[in-house]
Design a protein around this nucleic acid. Structure first.
Lengths: 147, 147
DNA sequence: ATGAGATCAAGAATTATTCTAAATAAGGAA
DNA sequence: TTCCTTATTTAGAATAATTCTTGATCTCAT
């Protein structure tokens, strides 16, 4: 008998644990295959190409579940929709004001991102999110836009 | 003739310039008087006590205008409503996961917050927003919550 | 005083996200 | 297998923050 179509794996990563269902697999693969920090809507569009019946609610559920489990990260660089990324290294995000692209910016080896900040004595930081805006290398080297 | 009631001042601060109208004055004073990073709704509630006729749309407009002008900062620590603060020093924000309070965290003197990050070559950073979550000193020193 | 442009008010519209309820799928036990 | 319990998915309604629209009002310079 052939198990391949129905077998699921249970993943233990980060803080949580969750079943890798078909839908979650698709959503996760979407994030892995094109690492451009898509929004939930964008993930939904891409996921539908692979699994036409998938629903937007499910995409939200999957992203949420995986974010809880620590398998993907939620990214907020602007005030619009939350974006998602499967990069688990400690990193910041850089939104290019001209082209709109979102880049990962790695933490330098052995660096401590909180070091520059005068943390209140006794505070414990569990989570850090760094959002930068500016011009990406490509756009910065381009002549100023005439519009 | 008495000018006091109608006279306006024009402020030149940061990048922009704007007229300090009665409504903007009220909104700005609300931010100055209680520096707890209120949301637009919260600013609206407080502003109405001083100027009952003010509208929510106007509060949004005022906050937006002043943010553009660089007189207040928009703060995004969680995914919920944007908060506002009149602190113009370079600083990060710390959201206490237990009590919900938002604290300002100053940049250490002469420190560079981007130093810890491996910025792509040639990128120019115009804006940096740092959001931390964890336990504030008060909550961290409290015994663990039973519930 | 007057006219142009900025600002304000009220409510409708938009949009991201969450919630609800019912249907389906999965894993374990007999 | 077959039955049972629980988790997941789905579709659409509900929520909530924010933006937009329109007409009224205010300000400033003339």
């Amino acid at each position: 008998m052939n198990h391949e179509d129905h077998q699921e794996e249970t993943l233990h990563v980060g803080s949580g644990e969750f079943r890798m269902t078909k839908q979650r697999r698709v959503v996760y693969d979407v994030l892995l295959d094109q690492r451009d920090h898509p929004t939930a809507q964008e993930v939904y569009s891409r996921a539908k190409r692979r699994m036409p019946g998938i629903s937007l609610a499910t995409v939200y559920n999957c992203l949420d579940t995986m974010a809880q489990a620590g398998v993907v990260k939620q990214v907020n660089v602007a005030r619009d929709a939350t974006r998602f990324c499967p990069n688990l290294r400690p990193h910041a995000h850089f939104l290019c004001a001209r082209c709109g692209e979102v880049l990962d910016v790695d933490l330098k080896p052995a660096a401590d991102a909180t070091l520059a900040w005068a943390m209140p004595d006794g505070a414990s930081v569990e989570h850090l999110e760094v959002a930068m805006r500016g011009l990406c290398p490509t756009c910065a080297s381009q002549p100023a836009q005439l519009v």
